[in-house]
């Protein structure tokens, strides 16, 4: 009985691997990317890419298990929702008013520790921002909202 159940799970498990999941990946840094419109120190740039871009850009750095269904579906849903809310890859397509609002919202989410998401940090402890990094990033974002972007 147990053996049969395991075999059944294996068959279903293998079978669902054949269902395609779109891959959120791209090689180019598009003209519309956030970092094409703002001058950012490398440290800030690396921080934002490491902590935000997996779910908020057109380029996800998938972990090895990230393509295994059903987990891949779960990740895909997160990425879709994340990009709908904020997409760094097409940031320059937002109106100036919307850019300001997105940056305001980033500051508030980082300050309150709502982003990066806790579930994401379980799998990506390196993406966690310490207090000093948070402060730096918030200062940087505040400055952008003062100076504006192009």
């Amino acid at each position: 009985m147990l053996k049969k159940a395991i075999i059944a799970i294996l068959i279903v498990g293998a079978g669902i691997q054949l269902i395609p999941v779109p891959k959120n990946q791209s090689d180019e840094l598009p003209e519309t990317d956030f970092f094409q419109s703002v001058e950012a120190p490398l440290a800030i740039r690396n921080m934002v890419i490491a902590s935000c871009y997996d779910c908020h850009s057109n380029n996800t750095d998938y972990p090895w298990y990230g393509r295994v269904r059903p987990l891949a579906w779960f990740l895909q849903k997160h990425i879709d929702e994340g990009k709908e809310e904020l997409n760094f890859s097409s940031f320059r397509e937002y109106s100036d008013r919307m850019k300001r609002e997105k940056i305001r919202s980033m500051i508030s989410q980082i300050r309150d520790g709502e982003m990066p998401l806790q579930e994401y940090l379980w799998m990506h402890p390196e993406a966690e921002l310490n207090e000093k990094e948070k402060k730096k990033l918030i200062e940087f974002l505040n400055q952008i909202n003062k100076d504006g972007t192009d």
């Binding site: 294996l10 295994v68 059903p70």
Partner: peptide, 16 residues
């Protein structure tokens, strides 16, 4: 393989 599937299943169910 079993372990991977197990982990995946647990994670997926957590999420849902």
């Amino acid at each position: 393989v079993l372990l991977t599937l197990g982990i995946a299943a647990v994670l997926a169910s957590c999420g849902s």
